[in-house]
Simulated scan of single mutants.
Amino acid sequence: MSFLPAAAVTLATFAFMELWAWFMHKFVQHGPLWVLHRSHHVRHPHPVERNDLFFVIYGSLSAALFITGANGGRWWFWVGVGIAAYGTVYFFVHDVLIHGRLRFWKKSQNPYLRALNMAHKMHHKTTGRDGSVEFGLLWVSPKYLRLAREQTRLRRPTASTSAQLPRA
């Protein structure tokens, strides 16, 4: 498969995965598979939780598409690339940045990343299966973007206040 179709399939799959993740999170993880996802909504001392099985499921699907995709010759190889790319972004944004499961990425001052964090905190406000909001990962409600931008604006020193700061 040539570059442009492969890139198009990969990007379309990545975008679709955000919609799929929202749907699965809202209707399956907070529904029939709550037995697995519940571990993500309660505090526990373990580094691994039952919810991590979803990574195994999607990682296995992506690997199967790689293995059977003739080293990029079949379109489904690139679907596997899109799933793997989304999973990688999901891991770094959700598990590393938001939940701090690995402590190498400190909280960001970027308004978009702060908005994602706010929305996710709202999702975790409830520890039960019902009553949660904000089920997506990369798409964030405009109200959280506005709040994050406002917080960032208020934290930046203005030209007049920075002129009054003592110099070292």
Rank of each mutant, 00 (worst) to 15 (best):
A119T: 06
V96C: 14
Y112H: 12
W20Q: 13
G131P: 06
S141V: 13
K26H: 07
V140R: 05
T88G: 07
P166Y: 14
T13P: 03
H124Q: 13
R114N: 05
F3W: 10
T152A: 03
E49C: 09
P166G: 08
R38Y: 04
L36E: 10
Y112F: 12
W139M: 12
G59D: 09
A63V: 12
S160F: 00
V42G: 15
V48W: 11
G59K: 14
E150W: 08
F3R: 01
V89G: 01
Q164I: 04
W34C: 03
H94F: 02
I83F: 01
H44Q: 13
E134V: 11
R129S: 08
R38E: 10
L102F: 11
D95W: 03
W75A: 07
A6F: 04
P5T: 11
A12D: 03
S60T: 13
R153V: 10
Y90M: 03
G72H: 00
A148V: 05
A148R: 01
T68G: 15
W34T: 00
L147W: 10
R38T: 08
V93L: 11
H123C: 14
K107D: 09
V56E: 02
T127V: 14
L33F: 01
F23Q: 10
R43P: 10
W105D: 04
A6C: 05
R43V: 13
H120D: 15
E18K: 13
G59V: 07
K121V: 07
L116S: 02
Y58N: 02
A119P: 06
H25G: 09
A115E: 03
R156C: 07
T68P: 02
K106A: 09
H41W: 08
I83V: 03
A84V: 02
L113C: 11
W105M: 10
D52F: 12
G131M: 09
H25F: 12
R101V: 01
E150N: 04
P45Y: 00
A119E: 00
V133C: 14
L97V: 06
